[in-house]
Design a protein around this nucleic acid. Structure first.
Length: 543
RNA sequence: GGUCCCAUCGUCUAGUCGGGCCUAGGACACCGGGUUUUCAACCCGGCAACAGGGGUUCGAAUCCCCUUGGGACUACCA
């Protein structure tokens, strides 16, 4: 049976690169009827954030990726937090030391830095100088007593060429003479990633490791460790990196970077106001702007909102908040560096599972193309079953605290129907919120007012429309249509001349659902009030 | 610098393993036109690529070599 896993370190929100790795592992497991496990790699005590692991689970669930064993549901091979597996790792580390396959080291980090700099200056590979005779347990005790850091290094066997049989890259050969003795246990007693991953994958029965290309050069170390411990070597597949359209690897740093750039491009910046918006002090904001520190994501989001800039999405939640569907994300991430081979691109999750195949994973890096993502989202909004879309829209509206969240399911269904052809849930929300805010809370878009109301006889037309609407015996989308069309014909103008002033009067801008629906949704009373308010507000300007 | 990986339209890619079916196909973006009460959506059309140089071969996008370009790694991070 195929067993795959996703093993994030809980350092923050799940970003799209991680989501893609998780997805490929998940697809392979689901396709083959195997198992997919989740493991939290929290051996770095300095970097762990308590809530971050929960957020990653939440993001995976939103995407529809589920797991058969994991930290929240347990399983036969737990615990699934590496921090809770110390005794297991200790046992194997001791075994390697006893067998003279690993040895104690007592270097300080300063000494290691010196070693590294020396190698760099001499333009050679930084190989750790292995002692001829390994220190004993007594030596380690003594070092500990003296307060020196004690680590354990793996003595890399310098024998035959290491061959990685990679499912996507084919055979990759590495000479062991290039490999330095690497640390398997840190001075705080925790294993390093290399040690923990090898032990856990063995004990958890993992058969296929799909991970990012950045791990390719770690694989010889892992294979050597497996051999030394008498473990199996799972099948490996190293996926290409996803690069950003702003250049370089798609990384979490992109959002803060974009925000700093946007703020610096502003002519005058009220630092205090922005700091308040983000909930931090002006000093903290200054540090951020000068590149000396990076605040947490909620702070970044809040400031971006205050500034009014759209930051590039990189975390899974960012896409949620921008109105993308999980179905879109899964489809797009799957198609990034993989294809079913028959020309299909827009696919449901079920279709992806059925078609997935490691042999069709691409070797070259791919760029995260946001406009293609947008197009995928448009397609999925059309494809998804209506009930699913209603539930996605509700989740979205609640997440962004939209006034539209007050609508019931029937209303949401109607909103969706009116917004046929929308590209994102965000667009739907923006086009619909006019009907869910108080009449006097509505704001007018300057350009729209100038173009539609102040130029030509827009206000005159609006006044006329208002009078006719007030006299309408029954308000339905049909009756409004009849009225407006009749009016346009009577005045010998296009429907736009009649509809646009009305649109600006009730929505404040030129973007709205079809005007007949918009009026019907707002109701006659509110429509007339907004027309009156608009006339009052702008009539004197034209005089 | 060293080790390793990669290289087809602007972008994602099909075709590469098992050379001829490739005057290189699709999708997104872009441009032009149509439809239209706004924004979208939708329909029709168009632009556009085998990184360069050597080989091998009757024949190369496909096999080999070199160059160039891009990327990953080079931590007591994972």
């Amino acid at each position: 049976m195929i067993v795959t896993r996703f093993a994030p370190s809980p350092t923050g929100y799940l970003h799209v690169g991680g989501a893609r790795t998780a997805l490929f592992n998940w697809l392979l497991a689901r396709k083959s009827g195997g198992k997919f496990l989740l493991r939290i790699e929290d051996t770095d005590m300095k970097r762990n954030a308590a809530t971050a692991a929960d957020q990653v689970l939440k993001d995976l669930k939103w995407l529809g990726i589920d797991w058969d064993e994991g930290p929240d549901i347990g399983g036969p091979n737990g615990p699934y937090h590496q921090s809770e597996r110390r005794d297991i790792y200790d046992k194997y580390i001791q075994q390697l030391i006893d067998e003279q396959k690993a040895y104690y080291c007592f270097d300080t980090s300063e000494e290691l830095t010196t070693l590294r700099e020396k190698a760099e200056a001499e333009k050679r590979h930084n190989l750790y100088p292995r002692p001829a005779v390994f220190p004993t347990e007594a030596d380690a005790e003594k070092a500990r007593a003296e307060g020196r850091p004690v680590t354990v290094r793996f003595a890399v066997p310098r024998a035959e060429t290491i061959v990685i049989e990679d499912e996507v890259r084919g055979q990759v050969r590495i000479e062991p003479s290039e490999l330095s003795d690497f640390i398997i246990q840190k001075s705080d007693g925790f294993p390093t990633y290399h040690m923990a991953v090898v032990i856990d994958d063995e004990l958890m029965g993992v058969t296929h490791v799909i991970r990012g290309q950045e791990h390719l050069m770690n694989t010889p170390n892992h294979q050597l460790l497996q051999k030394a411990l008498g473990f199996r070597t799972p099948k490996y597949a190293h996926m290409s990196v996803t690069v950003s359209d702003s250049g370089g690897k798609l990384s979490k740093r992109e959002r803060p970077k974009a925000l700093v750039a946007a703020i610096k491009a502003m002519p005058d910046v009220d630092v205090q106001a922005l700091a308040t918006a983000g909930g931090i002090s002006a000093e903290e904001l200054e540090l951020f702007l000068s590149g000396k520190s990076v605040p947490d994501m909620p702070v970044i989001d809040a400031i971006a909102k205050a500034v009014g800039v759209h930051l590039p999405e990189v975390n899974v939640v960012d896409f949620f908040k921008s109105g993308y569907l999980p179905e879109t994300m899964v489809n797009f991430l799957a198609i990034l560096g993989w294809n079913p081979g028959d020309g299909r691109e827009i696919m449901t999750i079920e279709e992806l599972i059925a078609a997935f195949d490691l042999s069709r994973v691409s070797k070259s890096n791919s760029l995260f193309d946001r406009s293609k993502l947008m197009s995928f989202n448009t397609e999925h909004i059309k494809m998804v079953p209506p009930e699913t879309l209603v539930s996605h829209l509700r989740d979205y509206l609640e997440e962004i605290c939209s006034p539209v969240a007050g609508a019931d399911d029937a209303m949401l269904k109607r909103i969706i129907k009116m917004n046929d052809g929308a590209r994102t849930l965000e667009q739907i929300e923006q086009k619909t919120r006019f009907a869910f805010i108080a009449n006097d809370a509505m704001t007018y878009d300057d350009k729209a007012v100038k173009k539609v109301l102040l130029k030509g006889n827009g206000l005159e037309m609006l006044e006329l429309v208002g009078k006719e609407l007030a006299a309408l015996p029954e308000l339905t989308p049909e009756s409004i249509e009849t009225l407006l069309r009749g009016l346009a014909e009577e005045k010998q103008v296009g429907l736009g001349k009649v509809a646009q002033p009305l649109r600006v009067a009730i929505c404040g801008n030129t973007v709205s659902p079809p005007i007949f629906d918009a009026v019907d949704m707002l109701g006659l009373d509110n429509t007339l009030k907004r027309i009156e308010r608009t006339l009052n507000e702008f009539q004197q300007i034209t005089d």
